[in-house]
Design a protein around this nucleic acid. Structure first.
Lengths: 189, 189
DNA sequence: GTCTATAGATCGATAGAC
DNA sequence: GTCTATCGATCTATAGAC
């Protein structure tokens, strides 16, 4: 009966949406394990404790985002309009409208002031997000302005994700994405 | 006969910063009562349960913000530059940098997807925030554009509050406030 | 102060794959 | 027979509530 019927990767992928939706404090190990169809005790076989679990979740999300973001940006054969298109698609995958928005933002606000355990992963995520946008912007803007604009865009998007959830209306995130597009492509087309 | 040594208002004011900082899920009734120097059982005299407590907290924050916001905006003897100044000061009181940012945003992300209990208070807060800004903007912009800009400003500010906490750097909120100021006063002075 | 439920966490046992 | 994935029972602390 061994023969990993639920691998660690599967577990991570199954619980990410739950944690994004319910928050990390409000998701119990029992609940998470039940959702994976395995015993709670088996979770402790995969993860030494809940904190480790969450860390691995955030690292997984981070690396997925990071990998795909820079794959889009560093594709030299792709025109910038195409990059923007792909970026929009990546973002809609990461920031699920009906499923809790941005797990990095949620976890940040939920935990940042209690313990700084997850700070590193969260900061990495945002720093890369900003850096990626900055690279894109440098097509049309000087470096320093690109950085400021990149920060501003991320800020706009994260605020949009919040309002989207408060009013259950995707327009706020959509508006931010449209503004991003307009800024990136200002001289193009 | 007891001579309320800690009134309900005092309790609310004492626990608001704690709830903003630690989040509502992560603040226990014991912890909150201890911080007020009263018995936990006395909390249940003031509030029928934790949910009621949180509701009253959010209602308190909302009405404080609402009252002060519209007092600033509807003061006809005050020039718009003065209004902006007062608005900035109100915001820095509400969105404590080192103390958890915006309790409305935090609570929204923490609870919105679990139960919609606090939705009303949270939506009221943001709706009034946007409406207030819209009123200010109508000095210099047509009504519809004012509304869109007001939403955009709130979005920018809330995103700034998030990044401020992630990086422990007030510049993100400050930048948003500066952008707000610039937009509101575009033709002025 | 006491109740009950549930949280995170640990331990020992077991069922197959090699 | 060992190794690995899994389970069931259980412990302790603490939560909300009265």
């Amino acid at each position: 009966m061994p023969k990993a019927k639920t691998s660690k990767e599967e577990v991570l992928n199954k619980i990410i949406p739950i944690l994004r939706n319910r928050g990390v404090q409000n998701s119990s190990m029992s609940e998470l394990s039940k959702a994976c169809g395995i015993q709670k005790s088996h979770f402790y076989y995969y993860f030494s404790n809940k904190e480790e679990l969450i860390k691995e979740v955030l690292a997984t999300v981070y690396s997925y985002f990071n990998h795909n973001l820079f794959k889009i940006i560093n594709n030299n054969s792709s025109p910038i309009t195409d990059k923007v298109l792909k970026l929009k698609s990546l973002m809609s995958k990461i920031f699920k409208v009906s499923d809790g928005g941005c797990i990095m933002a949620n976890t940040a606000l939920e935990t940042m002031h209690l313990n700084p355990t997850y700070k590193k992963e969260i900061q990495l995520f945002f720093t890369d997000f900003i850096s990626g946008l900055q690279l894109l912007l440098e097509t049309n803007y000087p470096s320093e302005e690109s950085f400021d604009l990149a920060e501003q865009i991320v800020q706009d998007i994260e605020g949009g994700i919040l309002l989207m959830q408060v009013y259950n209306d995707p327009k706020y995130l959509n508006n931010a994405v449209l503004r991003m597009e307009k800024i990136i492509l200002k001289n193009q087309q």
